[in-house]
């Protein structure tokens, strides 16, 4: 049996977000998957060309509309819903973009959503983490129902290069709402790698003591070519901006190397890092729960240890 899968591409207008390639890998785990990517944009050409290179993608559809300049769920959802009729599955990434959008699509289609898919057991059966990852639920979608899904990107590798798949312009005839308007986005410009796709991540906790204290992390990260993350406690205290938060309610990541510095390791934080290949913990409290999951632990004063590591590199 074949499954027709529509994946909503995430992008910033110029480049495809790496989360999309992970959704493709998840979709390919479904038997007989025939995968279509859809790019909603003002000018979709560059992103569509990139999307067409992903192995396993049969075609890329573009939905171009001046209303698609910013990824507003209320504007995108009716367009995707109008396109979704022939598909058995509609997937998007479990990023803030995908979580905001896919559930709105689920509502418009009256089709159930499986959130945070971490494994595919059959076209209708999936595994997903619940209770901050403290339990794994296997869930079966009722027969005959379309499956809306958000893909837990940390659980899947990015699809390799392949293709190129054909790119087709699509058009839908739906009225788009004007009740939701983009005002602005403030994003810290950074030359560091993207936290969600970086191979190496250095994260700091409340023990850093201040935004100033985080600077020793940035120095180490730059030496390692690493992204920088933060615990909820550090973000709440104002030491780091919200987009750096790693954990149940922040970003779920799976780097090759994760270095937790001055992070005690609350369960909500651990759920965000447990797919990391190697976890290193540096903490002055030998009893900190982070040491229960760390592959390499070092008990001591981070303000001495971190600069020393930097010198040794």
């Amino acid at each position: 049996m074949s499954s027709k899968i529509l994946i909503v591409a995430e992008h910033d207008g110029a480049k495809l977000n790496p989360s999309t390639a992970k959704c493709v890998t998840c979709a390919r785990a479904i038997d007989g998957a025939d995968i279509t990517l859809v790019v909603c944009a003002v000018n979709a050409a560059a992103v569509a060309a990139e999307a067409a290179q992903l192995a396993g993608v049969s075609r890329v559809l573009t939905l171009e509309n001046s209303a698609n300049e910013h990824a507003l769920a209320a504007v995108l959802a009716p367009q995707i819903a109008a396109l979704a009729e022939p598909y058995s599955h509609v997937f998007g990434p479990s990023t803030t973009f995908g979580k905001d959008l896919m559930a709105r699509i689920s509502g418009l289609l009256d089709a159930p959503q499986v959130s945070d898919i971490m494994a595919v057991e059959s076209p209708t059966r999936f595994r997903r983490p619940i209770y901050a990852g403290n339990a794994i639920l296997t869930v079966e979608v009722a027969t005959g129902s379309k499956v809306i899904g958000t893909v837990r990107t940390a659980s899947f590798a990015a699809a390799a290069a392949g293709g190129p798949a054909p790119i087709e312009k699509a058009a839908v005839n739906v009225e788009l709402p004007k009740h939701t308007r983009f005002v602005s986005i403030s994003a810290a410009r950074s030359d560091r790698p993207d936290l969600q796709s970086a191979a190496r991540v250095i994260s700091g906790g409340r023990a850093l003591g201040s935004a100033e204290g985080f600077k020793i992390l940035y120095a180490l990260a730059d030496k390692l070519g690493a992204a920088v993350g933060a615990s909820r406690a550090a973000v709440d205290a104002g030491y780091a901006p919200n987009e750096m938060q790693v954990g149940q309610t922040g970003k779920i990541i799976a780097p090759e190397l994760y270095v937790a510095i001055g992070i005690s390791g609350a369960i909500q934080h651990l759920t965000g890092i447990k797919d990391a290949r190697t976890i290193v913990a540096i903490n002055k409290d030998a009893e900190a729960p982070i040491f229960e999951v760390a592959d390499i632990g070092l008990v001591g004063d981070l303000f001495q240890i971190v600069p020393e590591i930097e010198r040794l590199l």
Partner: peptide, 11 residues
């Protein structure tokens, strides 16, 4: 609070 930073919307 979005992945890229802080986004402001009027609804």
């Amino acid at each position: 609070e979005v992945d890229a930073g802080l986004e402001t919307l009027d609804v």
